[in-house]
Design a protein around this nucleic acid. Structure first.
Lengths: 251, 251
DNA sequence: TCACATTTGTCCGTATGTATC
DNA sequence: AGATACATACGGACAAATGTG
């Protein structure tokens, strides 16, 4: 009898560019290649893998789209290894939204569910350094608002810092991707309505970021007091506000 | 002040293959091209877009990876429009989890958190058809067990059916991804220690699948009664058992 | 500021394997 | 079984962009 490996071996051999991209991906996942590292140039990579440049480029496209690398032209350019796949996941969520596979409500609901669970861990596990990071985020956000800039990035980052404070490495991935998706959805919807309705949206946007920062401050205070009930309640309310804002923009 | 659209307009002109893939994607999103439709062949597409084969192929790679199309070789083959975008998101999550150094414990904890939240929606939203699907799953699992086969696949599927019953399309993606990541990590760990362990695992495995099916039956009964408290409690206990079993396997 | 080297982006032509009719 | 249609893969070439000296 043949061994099971031979019995269940893939029906069709993988294409060359798939094997190449899988190989590079494995090197990254195993830590042999680290974020920030430059890969050799296309020509050099093609030579080392003994494939044509066309094949290698198709492999690079896969790695680029999945977020493992970016590519820069010109001298000292080339493929550059990245450290996060958040943007790629977020982009796919946007596609899914456009294909009407998911709705704003669904995204909001699951985000609320997950972040509430996360917050419980945060209150159990967070230490002084986490408070400091959150505090720094709020200060930066306030500064931007005083400069009359919407602190969109900082407001997303607040949730990412929270995820890290849960001391569970899965939470930053899940929360980060969904948060990024809502952010991208938000900016896109604002961009679309901006051209139609004029600049009035801008002010509303400023008001909303201000409201978000206030909510964040209240949540941090509750976390500091290790007050689960209040913290969860504030978070829930905050995320519902964000969801409603999205819904209003989408209409 | 300029509006934000001009401020954040793309730094560099998009590459040709990006424009091509975006164009095709747009046709799919707008419903002009529907799942099941055949795209023209590479050569024909290249001719119509007036780009080279290589450029067009890179565009196809993007569409393929994002789940918009598959590609078939041979006569009357060619690019075929698909609808597997949600699968692509799951695959990306799997990559993202692997990039973080994640442990079985972390995965177990977050799985328990998320499935508990999910179960609440299931109890609110599930209909008779969902019960039927779950019931069918349990019957199939029981049948396999009577044949002395471990119903591993069926037991995993039970949770996927639950995720669908939540009526939130994001849940199947997240829950499925975490389950897939757990399996992936586990097989990795087991492969490493395979030489030490013998086939004695098999009997234990059978016992565990039996226990799991019993738990699943109890959970379904609670869902049918719309008894949130009991259902969540049973699920939590069940996932803790699974977690402990995985921990033992991984050691 | 300007030329140069490096690297990606793009195109063309060709050959081969494979699935379908 | 043979012809056809298609993706896959290779090699060579030039253009465009970008950092460096």
């Amino acid at each position: 009898m043949q061994n099971s490996k031979a019995l269940f071996s893939p029906i069709r051999e993988k294409r060359t560019f798939e094997r190449v991209s899988a190989k590079i991906k494995r090197l990254i996942l195993d830590g042999v290649l680290k974020p920030g590292d430059h890969l050799p140039s296309e020509i050099e990579l093609a030579r080392q893998f003994d494939v044509s440049r066309q094949t290698l480029r198709e492999a690079l496209r896969i790695l680029e789209l999945t977020g493992f690398i970016t590519v820069q032209k010109g001298g000292s350019g080339g493929p550059l290894i990245q450290d996060t796949l958040m943007n790629s996941i977020s982009n796919l969520y946007l596609d899914a939204f456009q294909m009407e596979k998911i709705t704003i409500e669904e995204l909001t609901v699951i985000r609320c569910d997950i972040e509430k669970s996360m917050l419980n861990h945060v209150i159990d596990k967070s230490v002084e350094a986490d408070f400091a990071a959150l505090e720094a985020n709020l200060i930066e956000a306030s500064r931007k608002i005083e400069d009359n800039q919407p602190a969109i990035h900082e407001n997303i980052e607040f949730h990412n810092i929270l995820a890290k404070a849960s001391k569970n490495n899965v939470y930053p991935v899940v929360v980060g991707s969904i948060a990024a998706a809502t952010r991208d959805l938000l900016t896109r919807l604002i961009d679309e309505t901006l051209s139609e309705k004029g600049l009035s949206e801008y002010d509303e946007n400023m008001v909303n970021t201000k409201v978000a920062v206030v909510s964040h401050k209240a949540i941090l205070a509750a976390i500091r007091k290790r007050d689960k009930k209040t913290a969860v309640q504030l978070l829930e309310q905050h995320l519902h506000e964000v969801g409603n804002r999205l819904k209003k923009l989408a209409k």
